[in-house]
Write a protein that binds this DNA or RNA. Structure first.
Lengths: 207, 207
DNA sequence: TTGTTGTTAAACATTATTGTCTAACAATTT
DNA sequence: AAATTGTTAGACAATAATGTTTAACAACAA
């Protein structure tokens, strides 16, 4: 069906990813995953034993990629304003590539403590590295009087929430405004990305 | 069980609300709802026929209350800055009372087109009323040069997303920072609410 | 009191969903 | 070529979840 040299295992993983991201753990059905993958549903059990184990693989992979998207920014050593812009745009673009990821992750995290624990466990080794460098620069700029006082946590949450919101609103916007072409969507997203960056700069910068 | 003069129907509705908000449509199980309500599970079918119908009632009620929380603000006729502050604080407080509502609504909206249609249908008669007054004032202030140019849509999305984000992050924060007392949570929320208002004002106001 | 209506629980039926087992057979090794 | 290992589909089993029917009985009306 969608078999292009991929192993059956990989085909199932891909199908499962789609299904879980679309529907969430509880609403996703293993038969639907198998059908989507174009294999008999026993294959799913053969390779992954249980729905639970299959889910864990997908979830872990997604969380890892989410974390990675933050780490990448760190490699650069730009001035504060550029750093924030890069951070914001990279994060926005990352979510744009996986628009269903935020709701999926929120959901599974809120519903299931062990998922929460997994996220915390995976995040722990990176969190101080990710935040450390930004924090230093932020506090420098605040001391210099260039930036209004704000805690790192609040700033990051502001950025993250601004960046995610369009992707939650988009399906509704599409329905309401009768949007179907990819061009129109891209235009909306580009506008929103720029709005976010400007909004954050205006809020942060003293001048 | 939790029967305090409430009718069985109401008891079931309350239990269903809890269950659906906790788990979402697919993960919520009718037997769990019945158990939570302290009634036999056939009662659920007696009063509501199907899980689907029961869900629709809850969902409709929640959407209605969500819409109402926006409408209320409109009654007041304050100057722009006050209006925005009132809008933001009222909205934040509303979500604080129902912290699971945003994710629940997003989820069901994204997953199910007919839920999306219902929201649009319920929202339609109010949307122009809600936005109209704010838009007038916003554009006035922009023309006067008090406020940086921004579209109403973007402003509303910014406010909404900032206000909602803590409630998504809270369960994780609780786990990470070992927060259990209500006092601590309230402190975090109050700080966040103030951060949001200040952040928006800083971004908006020219001075 | 008798009948009518509304409420309830329990047993049952149906369907959906997950998970297991077997047999076929292809690929690889000996 | 025989044996071993890995892959697959299909039938089947077990369980979970939803939905239906029946019978009991309480409240109320005739």
């Amino acid at each position: 069906m969608e078999n292009n040299d991929l192993t059956t295992e990989q085909v199932i993983l891909n199908a499962a990813e789609e299904e879980f991201l679309d529907k969430g753990y509880g609403n996703a059905k293993t038969v639907a995953i198998a059908k989507r993958a174009g294999v008999s549903h026993s294959m799913l059990h053969y390779y992954f034993r249980t729905k639970e184990k299959l889910f864990q693989m997908i979830f872990e992979k997604k969380i890892a990629s989410l974390i990675q998207s933050f780490v990448v920014i760190l490699d650069k050593d730009a001035p504060f304003e550029q750093m924030i812009r890069q951070l914001m745009e990279a994060q926005f673009n990352f979510v744009a590539k996986q628009p269903r990821l935020p709701i999926f992750v929120f959901n599974e995290i809120l519903q299931n403590k062990s998922n929460r624990d997994l996220v915390i466990e995976l995040l722990a080794p990176h969190i101080s590295v990710i935040l450390g460098k930004i924090e230093t620069k932020l506090n420098e700029e605040i001391e210099k009087g260039n930036v209004r006082p704000i805690s790192l946590i609040n700033l990051m949450m502001n950025i993250l929430s601004l960046n995610i919101s369009v992707f939650i609103a988009l399906p509704v916007l599409k329905d309401v405004m009768n949007i179907n072409s990819k061009k129109e969507v891209e235009k909306i997203l580009a506008e929103r990305r720029e709005n976010n960056v400007r909004f954050v700069f205006n809020a942060l910068m003293i001048r």
